[in-house]
Simulated scan of single mutants.
Amino acid sequence: MSVKKNIREFTLPELKEYFEAIGDKKFRAMQAYEWLWKKNARSFDDMSNLSLELRKKLAEEFELKPLTVDVTQHSSDGTLKSRFRTFDGHLIEGVIIPTEKRSTACVSSQIGCSLACKFCATGLMERKRNLHFDEIYDQVALLNEQSLKMHGTGLTNIVYMGMGEPLLNYKNVLKSIERITASDSMAMSPKRITVSTAGVAKMIRQLGDDKVRFNLALSLHAATDEKRNRIMAINETNNIAALIDALNYFYEQTKNDITLEYVLLNGENDSLEDAEDLVKVYRKIPTHLVNVIEYNSVAGIDFVKSGEDSTQIFTDYLAKHKVNVRVRRSRGKDIDAACGQLANKDKVA
Rank of each mutant, 00 (worst) to 15 (best):
L64Y: 07
L50Y: 10
N235I: 06
T86E: 06
H151N: 14
L115H: 11
G23S: 01
S48L: 14
K280R: 15
I180D: 00
N239A: 03
D77S: 03
D184I: 01
A141I: 03
L54R: 12
A242V: 00
K171V: 03
T72S: 15
E135M: 06
I301F: 04
N239G: 04
R179G: 00
L91R: 15
G267H: 07
Y18H: 10
F119I: 05
H321S: 05
D277P: 12
Q110D: 07
M232Y: 02
L64W: 08
R102S: 12
V3L: 14
D316R: 14
G199R: 09
T287Q: 10
S82G: 08
A187Q: 08
Y282T: 11
L64C: 10
A246T: 06
L80I: 15
V290L: 05
K191R: 15
C117P: 14
D77C: 03
S103T: 14
N40K: 13
K16M: 09
D210N: 09
R28F: 00
S76L: 10
N49W: 10
I335M: 12
F10D: 00
R102K: 15
V69N: 10
L247P: 08
K81M: 06
I240C: 09
P13L: 00
P98Y: 07
K227G: 03
V159R: 07
Q253T: 02
V195M: 05
D46W: 08
K16Y: 00
S108V: 12
D277L: 04
N40G: 09
R228N: 04
N157W: 07
N248M: 02
Y317V: 03
L124W: 10
R129G: 10
Q110L: 08
K322T: 04
F87T: 11
K322W: 04
R8E: 04
S76E: 10
F250R: 05
Y160Q: 04
I240Y: 04
A343R: 15
V107T: 11
A246E: 02
L36E: 00
Q73G: 06
E273F: 11
E14A: 10
S2T: 08
H288V: 15
H221P: 05
S75G: 12
K4W: 01
K211M: 05
F314M: 01
F133S: 11
N6T: 00
F303M: 02
S219I: 02
S271A: 10
N256D: 01
H74V: 09
M30C: 00
K202Y: 03
D225V: 07
F44R: 08
T181W: 02
N235S: 02
V279A: 05
Q253W: 00
A41D: 05
D70F: 14
A121E: 07
R228K: 06
E61H: 13
K345R: 15
R42G: 13
I22W: 04
T287R: 10
A343L: 06
T104R: 13
H132P: 01
E63I: 14
A105T: 12
K149G: 01
S219D: 01
E126N: 15
N239R: 11
E252H: 08
K149F: 05
M186E: 00
K255V: 02
K202V: 09
E53A: 14
N324D: 00
L318C: 05
V304A: 03
R55K: 15
L115N: 11
V173L: 07
Y295C: 01
L318H: 07
N269T: 08
D225C: 09
L124D: 05
A299H: 11
S75C: 07
K101W: 06
A32C: 13
Q312R: 15
I234A: 00
